[in-house]
Design a protein around this nucleic acid. Sequence first.
DNA 1: GAAGATTGAAAAGTCAATCTTC
DNA 2: GAAGATTGACTTTTCAATCTTC
Lengths: 161, 161
Amino acid sequence: MDDDAFPRSIDERERRAWFGLVSTITLLPAALESQLQRESGVSLYEFRVMAALLMQPDHTLQLKDLASVTDGSLSRLSHVVTRLGRRGWVRRYSERTGRATQARLTDRGRQKVVETAPGHIAEVRRLVFDVLSAEQVGALEEITGRINTAIGAQSGSSRTS
Amino acid sequence: MDDDAFPRSIDERERRAWFGLVSTITLLPAALESQLQRESGVSLYEFRVMAALLMQPDHTLQLKDLASVTDGSLSRLSHVVTRLGRRGWVRRYSERTGRATQARLTDRGRQKVVETAPGHIAEVRRLVFDVLSAEQVGALEEITGRINTAIGAQSGSSRTS
DNA sequence: GAAGATTGAAAAGTCAATCTTC
DNA sequence: GAAGATTGACTTTTCAATCTTC
């Protein structure tokens, strides 16, 4: 079987789980993007950035840390902060360009996330938690934790570029 | 607490599972893209398209079905098939433009997927299956199956545009 | 000189409009 | 006229280069 894209390195059970997972990592982001874009005009990543800031006591976070918390590259974050800045939701908070910049959620930004959250959460509930048992929720936490750790491990968790 | 982005609609256990899942759906595609791009110069979506064709007896599939199998929109697929065509790996196989076009893997395309697969599979194994128990693999299949069904349900499973 | 950040160009994805055939 | 497919314009992401401060 040299025609087989998945030789004997992955067994049948794993193969089925893999097809499920690869669909989920494709479809779920798309579904969440869709709801957020349609109802609030923001992307999932933009929402995560603003939500992360909201969770800080002073609604402020250094870009490096914000990038890490949102699982994005510094470059991507910088572009997004610029866009969110144009919309008046986030402000760069450290005068001199160069080392160490803070991003802070504005009042309008805070308002925007708070307005946006319920619809997003409802969608997460509908697509994920409504269809899972309590045990499955527990298993999901453990499984994703392990995968995320494996990803963060060797490549050093830091995403350059 | 109106400062809280996640009010009482999601409990603490769900919240933890959610943070895990949202990281996974962000980090895992990025990690897989990275390996594929670095070692083989193809994207995850391109690989999935070619792998789907390889799994067909005649290495051929109608675009509509190929889009569905790879969880992509027809528009995205069409662009990708054009790119893969330029690289000589896939050929559009239905003369007249308009209704019903087939995509077929070329010999070089077949060779490319077969060469690319082992490295990709090794990465999937390393990041996913090596860190999960047999029970977790089973749970993962069930969980992703349910989520994918929930996504496919109401919005009609079909992705227009 | 390296960590943190920014920037611009290139590549990919999305969305809406269009086109063809059934 | 609608399903299947394509296309182009626009947006977002990525990648590499650059810049500043410690």
